[in-house]
Design a protein around this nucleic acid. Structure first.
Lengths: 207, 207
DNA sequence: GTCTATAATTCGATAGAC
DNA sequence: GTCTATCGAATTATAGAC
């Protein structure tokens, strides 16, 4: 038995504590933002003392970075699932609409991680943002490709720059986490639908 | 001469220092955000020591609140100017387009105050947000009325809720301050135009 | 009005007992 | 692995000289 080999339940126990801390951090970060989220509160939610966090993580920023990274992954997975359900032969117009609905739904329903990522990005230290730059660029590029694909197949207008419009769409979608709450009379599918149809089909009446 | 009556140049001197502090605070707040903006740095930009700020303001939050309030006022004025130039008899569709271009241009060109307001709002203390709630609600309501007006005159579709779309449009426009820089090859009028035509006329090709 | 010096907190991080 | 105790740094805010 090598030194790195541990009993299975011991591995699971350590992993579970780590996950509990990340869950707690995502919760606090999504509600308070980066600066206002204290290790004391994160530890309290995880039912620990603040000092104990350092056995599992090197620093506050290490916790924040991992939370945000998980949030980005969750969002990407949700979009992929929606797109693969729509099918590869759907038009760029339809695929963009599906992606918008999938993403808006994902970031509002049951994911403190994606909300923490959205809320804390600008506020987080430069080092953290640099460490996440590749993942975020990849995320943004996904939207750019989606739009460019629609421009190529003729279902989306090509007199605007996909890079600019992608940023705009991402920001518009992210804004829902700032005001939508589950107890609203308006369900999130309705909101997602309005977002998609407005950004993709426009607000102008075609009557 | 009443006790509150001061020599004109003395009034002006005090006001000028106050303005210099607000200018410095807007600069730092727009670049660093609420938490990372320290009084030491604000004072340095204003060419003072941190302690001296307290002769002019009661607290950091008092400075922040006033900067944000000025930012909101600047934005509102820019939109009003654009709309009055467009004329009262323009369609809701056209007035909304004009307002988008006016606002996007205003928040990127030459106004640390509007950028500070956009960047610091979510991060600022609850008391600050409550104090600005009326002004911000009024700002948002302006966009809602603009959209509803277009829905009434038939130039904008009425199968979406103006309240939801207004929030979405505001967030999309605000996002430009996060990435656009004056030295970009793409001028801000071009960006504003793309934003307006995409959100109002849509991304779908009408060919 | 502005400066220097410092009080008062808060928070991230570390050390050592258990 | 977790706790208690504490260090050290940063920051808002105050006090008093000038």
């Amino acid at each position: 038995m090598t030194p790195t080999q541990l009993a299975p339940d011991r591995i699971r126990k350590g992993e579970r504590t780590r996950t509990r801390i990340l869950d707690a951090a995502a919760d606090v970060l999504a509600r308070k933002g980066y600066a206002a989220a204290t290790l004391t509160e994160i530890a309290a939610v995880a039912k620990m003392q603040a000092g104990s966090l350092y056995y599992h993580f090197d620093s506050k920023d290490a916790i924040v970075e991992e939370v945000m990274r998980v949030g980005i992954d969750h969002a990407r997975d949700a979009i992929r699932a929606g797109l693969s359900a729509a099918g590869k032969d759907a038009s760029g117009h339809d695929r963009l609409t599906v992606a918008v609905v999938a993403y808006v739904t994902a970031i509002t329903i049951d994911s403190d991680f994606t909300q923490a990522n959205i809320r804390c990005f600008e506020e987080s230290p430069e080092a953290t943002r640099e460490n996440l730059a590749v993942a975020l660029r990849e995320f943004a590029n996904g939207w750019v490709r989606l739009i460019e694909s629609g421009q190529r197949d003729g279902s989306l207008r090509d007199d605007v720059e996909a890079q600019v419009i992608a940023r705009m769409i991402i920001a518009a979608m992210n804004s829902v986490v700032g005001w939508w709450r589950p107890d609203r009379e308006l369900d999130i599918e309705g909101v997602a639908g309005m977002f998609a149809t407005t950004m993709v089909d426009g607000l102008a009446s075609n009557a």
